[in-house]
Design a protein around this nucleic acid. Structure first.
Lengths: 335, 335
DNA sequence: AGTACTTATTAAAATATTTTAAAAAGTAGA
DNA sequence: TCTACTTTTTAAAATATTTTAATAAGTACT
């Protein structure tokens, strides 16, 4: 353990896991640290069972570099997401691969926290290798504390992170659902565009997750992304304009979404606007694009894409959990 | 020069100049570097004439720390801002204090670049201590290159940074006017709120500068902040809604601004919204606040403030110039 | 004024990191 | 298959940073 830079260990884990960097030269360049130092820290991670030395890379003209990879079986994580009458969960390995998932119903009007705690106890007993928790909820969250949860009165003002950490003695991350979704999409996106907005129309009103310059936008009073109240027409907000839509989107709804798209383009000008593929069809997207072009020049319209919201949400929770895991101090080795 | 970490030197300069940190313990904590290392690097800056050792601080219970300060007379900077028929300038010292300012008229329809180059030549001859340039322009700029400049056709697609750097062999920073203004306000703001938006109504259409999580938002196609085209009414954008306003703002204009305020609150939820005090009175602000409250809950309305746009703009250019200056490599000492 | 207590600074030793150079491991072409 | 070349890895020396402990410089109270 002597001579180890904790911060470098963390950045090393994150580079291996999230930035798809797997050779010492790559890591050395990106982390601007010399290869002897990288190698020394990598050796500790190997000794600790977190990283595996793989076969050599294909040569780029000279001696091929060895590849180092996070070991999938090093640890397990548990992601949970609260719904109105259920709690969904997913157990995954150290590289984020799904192992088990399921749902536990929660009777209507019953408080979520006790049900959550019971479920986690059961899952931990079932899989004792779980070492961190990630929780998603449709509420505004700051530092693991639930602030505003209109749909979950029993969660209001609950410090969920604190509660779960002292109950289970495991690191916990709690995040808003839209924020998790945008993180999840960003993670899976090959290009890793640095500014994207996830748009969710919703049954009980729309929401959005905003990622700018690679950072989540939370807002000064946890109100960022509450697009429902954006004024759009003489007498209607965005939320009102899309409230009466059917499954197939009508012209009025398309116009409202297009106005919102134009608004985002004229303020944040993001690379990407992501829609829930369950809510918006490919042809809707075409229409949104042409309608938006009535408001702003085509060049400035973000790329409009569809994605599976549930998948992105869960991937986001997984990603946030793994991120938390990389930040944990290394446990002392036998030496 | 042996044993000097260039990156640390830069961060040291920036902490002294911008973060109001002046003692070794403060610097050591903030830069998470040990005091011997801080002291060693500080000594180099002192030897180099960039920093002055001051009298001791007042005691906080024990031995008072010495205060270290950037020397105002170490170097001079020149900020220039392009207007339609003139170029304004300001010469300032190494801590940003104004030394000289003035304006040079440019005949209408004449290209700005040659006039700018001539003016800089004259000012450099007049004050040979100037070591860096900062240029502001009402156009979209990326990496010093002017992209879209409807008001300055002669600047379109000009790499102004490159042009000036090769002409004068001095470091140059070029920035959009609204971005400079929001940076300037942020710099002067005691609280240094991390998310703010500067709103400019303008004669030829409005604009805005957006700073989120401490970073400028530029957008994927340099279109961020182009609020003129935000759809707000059945048949009007923000730009159209405020186009016919008089000096005293009417109810319709107030409503349009309030809708924009609500839009920002419901998307970015910034701490602060800054208005040009030449365009908006204190009582206008009151009205905007109450009107905005018709659209969103009062708690989520950003703090609305008035500020002098010109001052903020120039302070922003000054700040960007000084920042550039801190990033310059140290010139070899006599040893 | 003197003493106990805080806090900053300095100096020396311990530790960590980088640089440099040599060795190892591959490819490609003669 | 040998040679020249490229790139990675290892090892040793040089350099940089941090830790530790001692010293200096103040305050507050008796």
């Amino acid at each position: 353990m002597a001579g180890m830079n904790t911060d470098l260990l963390i950045r090393l884990r994150q580079a291996l896991l999230f930035e798809r960097l797997h050779t010492i030269p790559e890591l050395s360049r990106t982390l601007s640290t010399s290869f002897p130092t990288i190698k020394k820290h990598l050796d500790l991670l190997i000794e600790h069972g977190e990283v595996d030395e793989e076969d050599s890379d294909v040569s780029s003209g000279g001696r091929p570099a060895k590849r180092y990879r996070s070991r999938a079986d090093h640890t397990h994580g548990l992601a949970l997401y609260l719904e109105l009458d259920a709690i969904g969960y997913r157990i995954f390995d150290a590289v984020g691969t799904l192992l088990t998932n399921g749902t536990e119903s929660v009777p209507r009007k019953h408080p979520h926290v006790p049900a959550l705690v019971r479920l986690i106890h059961r899952l931990l007993a079932q899989d004792p290798r779980i070492t961190f928790l990630s929780v998603g909820v449709a509420a505004s969250v700051e530092d693991g504390k639930v602030f505003f949860a209109p749909d979950y009165p029993s969660l209001q003002q609950v410090d969920l992170k604190q509660t779960l950490e002292s109950e289970f003695h495991l690191p916990v991350v709690v995040e808003n659902d839209m924020n998790a979704a945008v993180v999840g999409f960003h993670e899976a996106d090959q290009n890793r565009q640095q500014s994207l907005i996830y748009l969710y129309l919703g049954k009980n009103g729309p929401g959005s997750g905003i990622l700018i310059n690679g950072q989540l936008v939370r807002g000064s009073s946890h109100f960022a992304g509450e697009i429902s109240v954006v004024p759009q027409y003489d007498k209607m907000t965005f939320g009102q304009a899309i409230a009466n839509r059917q499954t197939t989107l009508d012209v009025r709804t398309i116009d409202a979404i297009s106005r919102l798209t134009a608004t985002f383009a004229a303020t944040l000008n993001p690379h990407l606007l992501i829609f829930n593929s369950a809510e918006v069809t490919a042809s809707d997207l075409e229409q949104i694009r042409t309608t938006t072009a009535r408001y702003i020049p085509e060049t400035h319209i973000p790329r409009l894409v569809r994605s599976n919201w549930e998948t992105d949400y869960l991937n986001g929770l997984t990603r946030l959990g793994l991120q938390l895991q990389t930040e944990q101090p290394i446990k002392g080795t036998s030496t």
